[in-house]
Design a protein around this nucleic acid. Structure first.
Length: 318
RNA sequence: CCAGAGGGAGCCGGACGGUUAGGCAACGGUCUGUAAAACCGUUUAAAGUAGGUUCAACUCCUAUCCUCUGGA
């Protein structure tokens, strides 16, 4: 049975897709996107979708921006997709920067994804203070509470989720171990010094503006709201002040001032590029500390040669 | 040339005659249904220049340089 799975992870702007396409061509593969943003239809420029010609790519454009999606959904559909590709004797190549999403497909230890969000509880908890949530969680699970790190204990969302899990019956917890552990896995991760990535990110921001990012947003706004899940993606939220500024001018019966518009726009672009720097940092941190992958620095010459050698060896063994 | 406003950390910037401003960036980290999310930690750094007043000056005074705005 063909059970190989190649994973190419790494922070944004490391050229993962390019590499994955080359590997797909060489080893009869198909790409599976491990990207939490490219799942949205119509959000192409802002999420940096590449549409490689000739190589199929799965799990992009699977929902509309007004739909909710989560790792649990991704795990389900991702596993199905990978197995389906394998069943056709092709090599699935999981490629992306969303560490949590990728991990959900290759790490067998996630066992709470079957516990569904509790809508009533979440609705009520929205109005409770952080301190109150801490007290509730402490009451329900004293040991668990004291194990929380400094970051989780201050995280409203994560505390809600932890309490939600405590509220659900333990019967719901099922292990996904059996579904996952039979992959023959090779996990490669691309890295680069941060300042190297920042330069590429900034160049990419400019490029995306040139190929019509503003038009894309305008089109999206005809159908969707700024509060929709897909519209929460940093690239889009960062440009919101620009559109708000235009709207306010029109509301007052004025034509939006060009000078003011330019000023707002450039500050939007600054925060967009900062947001992407921050993504790159966080993603780098995830892969470095959690993934256990083999790393390749893309700022070094000929880094891809050793990748091809490694993949070749792995692909051709038994 | 005249008048006004202002000069502070990599950037923005509030207050104040004495005590950590704050934010952004940068750097490090957390991660089991929002993950391009959410959250945490770190930064032993400044006051255009020269004087003066004061126990004490980023803050008050004088000179000088520079920037911006308006007017000739």
């Amino acid at each position: 049975m063909f059970n190989k799975l190649l994973v190419i992870s790494g922070p944004t702007a490391t050229g993962k897709t390019d590499l994955a396409v080359k590997l797909a061509q060489k080893y009869n593969g198909e790409l599976v996107s491990g990207d939490s943003c490219q799942i949205y239809k119509g959000m192409d420029i802002g999420t940096g979708k590449d549409q490689p010609s000739g190589t199929p790519i799965h799990l992009i454009d699977i929902i509309t921006p007004d739909q909710k999606f989560s790792v649990a959904d991704f795990q389900k559909i991702g596993l199905e997709t990978i197995k389906e590709i394998q069943s056709r004797g092709k090599l699935p190549i999981l490629v992306g920067c969303s560490g949590f999403y990728i991990d959900s497909l290759i790490n067998p230890n996630y066992n709470t994804f079957s516990i569904k969000p509790n809508k009533i509880l979440r609705f009520i908890f929205k109005y409770l203070s952080l301190g109150t949530l801490q007290k509730i969680y402490k009451f329900l699970d004293k040991d668990g509470f004291f194990k929380l790190n400094h970051s989780d204990i201050n995280n409203h969302y994560r505390l809600t989720r932890k309490i939600e899990i405590k509220f659900s019956s333990l019967k719901n917890i099922e292990n996904c171990k059996l579904k996952i552990e039979n992959f023959d896995l090779l996990h490669l991760s691309l890295t680069a010094p941060l300042d190297f990535l920042y330069q590429r990110i900034d160049a990419r921001v400019n490029k995306r503006m040139k190929i019509g990012f503003l038009d894309e947003i305008e089109k999206l706004l005809k159908k969707y709201k700024w509060t929709d899940p897909g519209m929460q993606i940093a690239a889009y939220q960062c440009l919101k002040p620009y559109f708000d500024n235009n709207k306010v001018s029109l509301f007052k019966g004025k034509v939006p001032s060009k000078v003011e518009g330019q000023r707002v726009l450039s500050s939007c672009l600054q925060s967009w590029s900062y947001a992407e720097h921050s993504d790159a940092r966080r993603q780098t941190c995830w892969f470095k500390t959690k993934s256990g992958a083999i790393f390749f620095d893309i700022s070094k010459d000929n880094f891809d040669k050793s990748i091809f050698r490694l993949v070749d060896k792995w692909y051709n063994k038994s």
